[in-house]
Every structure is written in C-alpha cells, then in structure tokens.
Design a protein around this nucleic acid. Structure first.
Lengths: 110, 110
DNA sequence: CAGTATCCATGAAGATACTG
DNA sequence: CAGTATCTTCATGGATACTG
C-alpha cells in the first residue's frame, strides 16, 4: 500500500475514517459518552493496559478527536472528553450499533 | 481483554461490528461495489498482497459478509459479491464517508 | 491518580515464488 | 486466473514495575 506519513490522510474519506478510528480500542473509547477520567476509561474498557490506553488517547488528542483537561489538584485529576468533531462520530457509532445488533440476531437464528 | 474464541461475538454490538469489519482492508473491500473478481479486487485495493486479500476474503465469507462464486471455466473465474447482510453495511460506509469528508475539510482549513 | 518505561509475545502484513 | 506456501519484518498489545 502507498505509504502515508503521519498526519497525512488518504484520498478516500472512508479510508480516512478507518485510519482515524478504525481500530478496536479507539472505537470503544468513543463509545464511552461524557467526560471520563483515565481510571474510569481503564475500568470501562475491559482489560486495556495503561500503556495502550495512554497511547490511543495521545493519538486521538493529536488528531483532534478528544480533549484532555488537567486539574491542578493533588493528586492530579485528568479528564477526557470528545471534541466537536469527535461528537460527530456518534451517528457512525449508532450505525455500527444497529448493524451489530442485526448481525447478532441473524447469527443467533442459525 | 476478555478472550473470545473464533466465531464468538462480543456482547456489545459496536464491538461486534468493529470485530467484523473494523480493520482497514475489510472496510475497503466492502467499499468496492458490485461483483468483483480476485484480480479486480487486487487492482482496486492499492497494494494489497495476494495473501492478505485472500485471507480477508475467506474470513469475510465465513462470516457471511460476502459470497464466493466459482465458474468452471478455463482459466478459472471467481467472483465475489456482498451478501444481504453485507449490503446492509452500506449506510455505515456512507457515514464513514461523510465524517471522513468533514474531517478532511476541517483539517484543510487549519 | 495518571501516567511512563521496559521487555516480551504475538500476529498481521509484505515480498516472492510457485501451482491447480 | 486465482490463489497457496514460505519466510521475514514490523507494529501492536500485554504484563509489570516504577514515578511526578
């Protein structure tokens, strides 16, 4: 496949979306509505490691999908939330939900 | 993460969809409308190798997303097409397209 | 609390050559 | 034509321990 440099986007919009959220964890991170702290995300994402969660959050922040807010408290408090463009992924997530349910219902009847 | 055996689906429908089509190549395969031959898929999917395309097609067929039809000709002719449930992914792909375009337009204005 | 730093295991993908 | 068979490389993720 043609190599892309970091921050470079593929010509096809679908490929772009797949690049940005097309992996397991990122989609599940978006799934979690509202503002969440690091620890809450860890708990909500059955089994994700610190390292991996942290990596994804960084990339997603650099891509403008989520926002990171740090509170100068002791101990430190950090909150993550979706940006505007991040929220606009909701219809897509909804479609995924719909299709997933349909697929599962069909599978169940086999 | 909780381990899933092959053919077992996660409880969450979104995770199910992500599992089934949530990777780069599968999504792009679905993107290609209509009935396609192996060679046409190869050409349409900028740089995918025989091995990888073949692997994805097999999995997608076993999951019921695509159909494989073999014609008893010489040389052999094989056609792939979306099944009913495969076609029902189209609204999702459409949402991906929409969001991808939106994202790219925002990026372009930075 | 919210990470970072390592190290290791796994598997997905690429290149290439070959075949029914 | 439509794949399969190998081999190699590389990225991703998991486990664990440690820190500002």
């Amino acid at each position: 496949m043609t190599e892309l440099k970091y921050l470079e986007l593929p010509p096809c919009p679908v490929a772009t979306t797949a690049l940005l959220i097309g992996d397991h964890w990122k989609i599940l991170i978006i799934l979690l509505n509202g503002t969440k702290r690091f620890g809450e995300l860890t708990k909500g994402l059955d089994g994700i490691s610190n390292k991996v969660l942290s990596q994804h959050l960084k990339v997603m922040e650099s891509r403008g999908l989520i926002e990171r807010r740090v509170y100068a408290e002791v101990p430190v408090k950090v909150e993550y939330s979706l940006t505007d463009i991040g929220w606009k992924l909701k219809p897509l997530i909804h479609e995924m939900w719909q299709w997933g349910e349909l697929y599962k219902s069909i599978e169940a009847n086999k």
